[in-house]
Amino acid sequence: KELVSALYDYQEKSPREVTMKKGDILTLLNSTNKDWWKVEVNGRQGFVPAAYVKKL
């Protein structure tokens, strides 16, 4: 599985998104959309802005 690192804090703005803190390591589930990537963090799945994470 592919991992990404959070470059910035992000506070979810809808139920489809997830909150992350800078430095968090997230499991990348889907990166086909260039703007929003689906990740899993702390057992929750949702979307984060692609520009806020980088692949490890």
Rank of each mutant, 00 (worst) to 15 (best):
G43E: 06
N42G: 12
G23A: 03
K1R: 14
K38S: 08
L28A: 01
V53T: 04
G23W: 05
A6R: 00
E12G: 15
S5M: 15
V41M: 14
L29C: 07
A6F: 01
K34N: 12
V4L: 12
D24Q: 13
T32K: 12
G43W: 03
L56I: 14
A51Q: 12
I25V: 12
T19H: 05
K38N: 07
K1A: 13
K34Y: 08
T27A: 10
P15N: 11
S14N: 12
K1G: 12
M20Y: 02
F47L: 09
R16E: 13
D35G: 09
L28W: 01
I25E: 05
V4H: 06
E2C: 15
K38W: 15
A51S: 14
K21N: 09
K38H: 13
S14I: 05
T32G: 10
M20V: 10
Q11M: 13
W36E: 04
G46V: 04
L28G: 00
K1W: 13
T27D: 05
P49N: 02
L3S: 07
V41L: 15
V48F: 00
N42I: 04
K54N: 09
D9L: 02
W37S: 03
K22F: 07
V41D: 04
K54I: 14
Q45M: 11
L26N: 00
M20T: 03
W36C: 09
L7C: 11
D9N: 09
N33L: 09
D35K: 13
Y10V: 01
V41W: 07
G46L: 04
W37Q: 02
G23M: 03
V41F: 15
V53N: 00
I25Q: 06
L26H: 03
V4A: 13
I25K: 06
D35N: 13
S14L: 08
Q45K: 11
D9W: 03
K34L: 10
F47M: 09
L28H: 00
W37H: 03
D9K: 03
E12Q: 14
K13P: 04
V4Q: 02
Q45I: 15
S5R: 15
K54D: 10
Y52W: 08
G23C: 07
R44S: 06
P49A: 02
D24Y: 04
E12N: 08
E2M: 13
W37T: 03
L3V: 09
N33D: 15
K21C: 10
K54L: 12
P15W: 12
K22D: 02
V39M: 02
T32W: 09
Q45E: 13
N33E: 11
Q11P: 07
N30F: 07
N42D: 13
R16H: 14
A50S: 13
L7S: 05
K13W: 04
V48I: 09
K21H: 11
P15L: 10
W37M: 04
K54F: 11
W36M: 06
Q11N: 14
L56H: 10
L7R: 08
L7M: 10
F47G: 01
W37C: 06
Y8L: 11
E40S: 09
K34M: 10
I25C: 07
V53E: 01
P49K: 04
M20K: 00
L28K: 01
A51W: 10
V18N: 04
K54A: 13
D35F: 15
M20F: 11
T32N: 12
K1H: 14
D9Q: 03
N30M: 08
I25R: 06
Q45F: 08
F47S: 03
L28Q: 00
N42P: 05
E40H: 05
L56N: 07
L3Y: 15
S14E: 08
R16C: 15
F47D: 04
L56C: 14
L7I: 11
V39N: 00
T19A: 07
K54C: 15
L28P: 01
D24N: 06
L3W: 13
E17N: 05
K54M: 14
V18P: 01
E12K: 14
D24M: 11
L3T: 09
T19N: 08
V41K: 13
E12I: 06
A50D: 02
Y10C: 03
L3D: 04
L56A: 07
K38Y: 15
M20S: 01
N42T: 05
R44T: 08
E17I: 04
K22N: 04
V18K: 02
G43K: 05
L26P: 01
S31M: 11
G46N: 00
L56V: 13
N33P: 04
P15A: 13
N33H: 12
E40W: 06
N33C: 10
A6N: 01
V39C: 06
Y52E: 02
V48D: 01
L56T: 09
R44W: 05
S14R: 09
K13G: 09
L3E: 08
P15R: 10
I25A: 04
D9C: 06
R44E: 05
W37L: 05
T27I: 15
R44P: 00
K55A: 10
T19L: 02
Y8H: 11
W37F: 08
Y10R: 02
L7T: 07
V4T: 05
V39S: 00
F47H: 06
L7Q: 07
E17V: 05
V4Y: 15
K38R: 11
Y10K: 01
G43C: 07
Q11D: 14
V18Q: 03
P15T: 10
Y52M: 14
T32R: 10
E12A: 15
G43F: 05
S5T: 15
K55E: 08
L28C: 07
D35M: 13
G23N: 07
G46S: 02
T27N: 08
E17P: 05
E2V: 14
K1M: 13
Q11S: 12
G46T: 02
K54T: 14
K21T: 09
R16F: 14
S31V: 08
V4R: 04
R44M: 08
L26Y: 09
L56S: 08
D9M: 03
E12Y: 05
G43P: 01
P49L: 04
K38D: 04
L26K: 00
W36I: 03
G46Q: 01
E2D: 11
K55H: 11
A6W: 01
Y10L: 02
A50W: 02
A51E: 11
E40G: 05
F47Y: 15
K13V: 08
G46M: 05
D35A: 10
V39G: 00
K21D: 04
R44H: 08
N30R: 06
K55W: 09
L3H: 09
A6Q: 00
A6I: 02
V18W: 05
V53A: 03
E17S: 07
T27P: 13
K38F: 15
G46K: 02
G46E: 02
V53M: 05
K13F: 05
V39E: 00
P15Q: 11
V39F: 01
L7H: 05
D35Q: 12
G46I: 03
K13I: 08
A6L: 02
L29D: 01
N33K: 07
K22T: 08
E2Y: 12
T19K: 04
K34F: 08
P49Y: 03
Y8E: 11
R16G: 15
K22G: 05
E2H: 12
D35S: 11
R16W: 15
G23L: 03
N42F: 08
N42H: 11
L56K: 06
T19G: 09
E40T: 06
N30Y: 07
Y8G: 06
L26R: 00
L29R: 03
K1C: 15
A50R: 09
G46D: 00
L56W: 11
K55T: 10
S14C: 11
S31A: 13
R44N: 07
A50T: 05
V53G: 01
K38C: 14
A50P: 05
V53W: 01
V39P: 00
E17Q: 12
R16L: 14
A50I: 03
G46R: 02
R44G: 03
T19W: 04
K13L: 10
N42K: 09
A50C: 07
K55N: 08
V4F: 12
E12C: 14
Q45R: 11
D9S: 09
V48G: 01
P15C: 11
